[in-house]
Write a protein that binds this DNA or RNA. Structure first.
Lengths: 180, 180
DNA sequence: ATTCGATGCGCGTCGGAGTGCCGAAGGAGA
DNA sequence: TCTCCTTCGGCACTCCGACGCGCATCGAAT
């Protein structure tokens, strides 16, 4: 049914784990357990299960791209001159190698791509347009729009943390505080 | 000059550190030092400096959103009925609370926003359109395009890892292998 | 020549991760 | 309804690894 594996089944605790790990991937198991309110053993088991199930694909550092001077985001709509299969393949192979491209979607409807480009400033984008974008094969038209401000930027929509609030086994009702 | 702080100065080793950490944020310092070829002390110092300088903003887990059924990406262009300041503010305050929105840019040119929405399928997007998007204030027009495929998806453009290849002090020419 | 900056190495300590065992709770079956 | 089984959580323990520090060294810049 689904693409590669079965659908996920999560409870509230798994959602909390994912929420914490998407906020801070380097948090230790004991800190996680303290935040969530479960023992570190259970947290470690669940986190390991989430990793092995492939729900957690990995952990990555988030960089401040503004510190690199990449302050301008440009949304570029590119139309190919042909919708043939090898035209798509050639274009996509080229756009993957563009070092200023961070996202590229093949869109439905008209046969075009939406490409997100990061640039230092306007004239840097002009340079990117000349050296990267217009050298892409089979391109018929390039239309650029500049982003003035990034209002929302989330890696994960908040809807996944609350997905399937059904508990896995029980509500752990009378939980004794972890003494030491 | 820049927005909040000075421009970055990095050498090749810092770029390697950032490259490794964006690929795997949970790598330990000794593993990092083994991959890069510097001692773990230097790696730890540089990583700490990168964190304290704010170049590394944090670490986050990457989830497989397909496992949550979020298989459809929709690019939505929203035009407001007014370009007044409080119209923008009201719309942005509303779009931040939309749980299916992962990205939103205020675009130049015409007074509109480009919003990226994740949905389970077409009819889920229809539901999102009804319950989230069309309830946003001051909206005049909503135009949706469906993404068929994600060709490129990078958090960080590869250009930053090679930024400013000037070494910080010296090229560590005769490096003895780390014996043990 | 001197000073500064960065690296390399060794050491010690602290903390995290993994394991085994037990208990509790829920579900299934008779 | 009773019993068995499965599953998950909690606790204690051990071990190994990471992290941080201090000092010596080397190179470069002034």
């Amino acid at each position: 049914m689904a693409q590669n594996s079965k659908r996920v089944d999560m409870d509230r605790v798994d959602g909390l784990i994912l929420s914490e790990l998407t906020a801070n991937a380097r948090v230790s198991q004991v800190d996680l357990s303290a935040r969530i309110g479960l023992s570190s053993t259970a947290i470690a088991r669940r986190q390991r299960a989430l990793e092995e199930d492939g729900i957690i694909r990995g952990y990555q550092a988030v960089l401040d791209l503004g510190r690199f001077g990449l302050a301008v985001t440009v949304i570029v709509r590119i139309t190919l001159e042909s919708q043939s299969d090898d035209a798509l393949k050639a274009f996509e192979a080229g756009v993957i190698d563009c070092p200023s491209v961070v996202r590229c979607f093949l869109m439905s409807g008209s046969d075009d791509y939406i490409v997100t480009v990061l640039a230092r400033d306007i004239e840097d984008f002009e340079h990117i347009h000349r050296t990267e974008l217009s050298r892409l094969p089979r391109v018929a038209r390039i239309e650029s729009s500049f982003a003035l401000r990034e209002v929302v930027s989330r890696a994960v929509p908040p809807v996944v943390f609350s997905a399937s609030a059904a508990p896995k086994h029980k509500p752990p009702s009378p939980r004794r505080p972890t003494r030491r």
